[in-house]
Design a binder for these strands. Structure first.
Lengths: 219, 219
DNA sequence: AAATATTTTTAAGTAAGCTTAAATTTTTTT
DNA sequence: AAAAAAATTTAAGCTTACTTAAAAATATTT
């Protein structure tokens, strides 16, 4: 299957995770940076390949086959991110961009070799779960968005859900990194702003940030 | 530039290394597994992009720009082979196939990171030289084909110039590996067959093999 | 050097993956 | 519930990278 198809199926998978009604052609088109017409076209084509269910004007739903393909690509993406993160001193944003290309040029055999080399990790450097070779995901996710946390408690960063360079630069600068600890000192304005302490610094984060930084409470 | 273009330029580079008159469209077409017509077409297109010199019915010659592009792709290919060879237990043939795809999806930054991680190696696991970031190749190649060697001397394997699975399987089975030593016991039939000792075994190789296994004399 | 074979080129056509523009359907607003 | 806005779909067209078939040029054989 082509790169365009893999990316299309992956986009449906990703959007569907967020919001099940976010998989209409227009939303996928936006995600991929193509026209709505192209997305509709592709959706009809992929329906005929049994990768998704297509009904005019409705949200796109992956078939089992389509879901499996998406998970296979996501697996390769996250394995590459894990490997590059381990071996090289590169920003998470750069690593993400490389993985975005490498994911489509990786045999299942190589993916397994990478996984084995890394000790079959369950999470990538963003904290996102890595599907196994059968497309199964470990989803014992008890984490919450930073915007949902309570004042006066300590948390550990479990996921940084973004591809954005500015975001990662900011995170790197302030020690906001997968696995690091932080303390929530104050929630303002009905949790629209959150004040945290990390590495002996106090920073104030708005909802753009606190909605994509996920944490687990420390016990 | 597209994958098709990178592969086209690389094929001219590779064929040109072997034999300067081996770069007519038909030979490139054979190398790439496309029709002669497609190769002529592409040649004309790449001439207009200043990647090669095209004259009707003549061999294709890369411009400086085209040569640089080819070396950049070759660099990435050989760096990937070196990395995969170091990290994973995979056959040279499989490694070659993965590198064939990865080479086109690798930023210059990532190539530099791989090179640095490996200690800026000058040769890949086949013994082929790795161009540096400026496209310069270390060519202090004093090696000779096994078919050119003399009876009664010891040599070290310096290059295995093939992409063929059967060949690599045979090599792996008999310890014919980059860096290994061997002893040439006999040349038969005007060097058309060569008898060697390696790992306490004696094997007889025909010209198909002795023309692509390169060695340096031990002193 | 003529005849034959091979190679290269041109020409016409195809599939994938896009585009823009217009028509249709759905959704939102009033 | 009608009008306006937004999204989706259809239609027509483009580019890339191929294909096959025929024409033209080059290379080889005799």
């Amino acid at each position: 299957m082509s790169i365009a198809i893999e990316n299309f199926v992956k986009a449906i998978y990703k959007n569907g995770k967020r919001d099940n009604n976010d998989t209409k052609p227009g939303n996928i088109a936006k995600e991929l940076g193509i026209s709505n017409a192209a997305a509709t076209d592709m959706a009809q084509k992929l329906a005929s390949k049994d990768l998704l269910h297509y009904e005019k004007y409705q949200a796109l739903k992956l078939t089992d086959k389509g879901n499996k393909m998406a998970l296979n690509v996501v697996r390769k993406h996250r394995l590459w991110e894990s490997l590059l993160f381990k071996l090289f001193d590169m920003s998470l944003h750069d690593i993400h961009r490389e993985a975005e290309l490498l994911e489509h040029q990786t045999s299942d055999l190589l993916a397994d070799k990478i996984s084995e080399y890394l000790g079959n990790p369950k999470f990538d450097p963003h904290g996102d779960p890595i599907p196994n070779a059968n497309g199964e995901i470990t989803t014992t996710d008890t984490s919450m968005a930073l915007s949902q946390t309570s004042e006066g408690k300590k948390y550990t960063i479990s996921r940084l859900m973004s591809d954005d360079k500015e975001f990662f630069d900011f995170c790197a600068q302030h020690g906001l990194k997968y696995g690091n600890s932080l303390f929530v000192s104050k929630q303002f304005n009905k949790n629209k702003m959150t004040q945290i302490s990390i590495n002996n610094n106090t920073i104030l984060l708005n909802e753009d940030f606190t909605s994509i930084i996920y944490v687990n409470e420390n016990h």
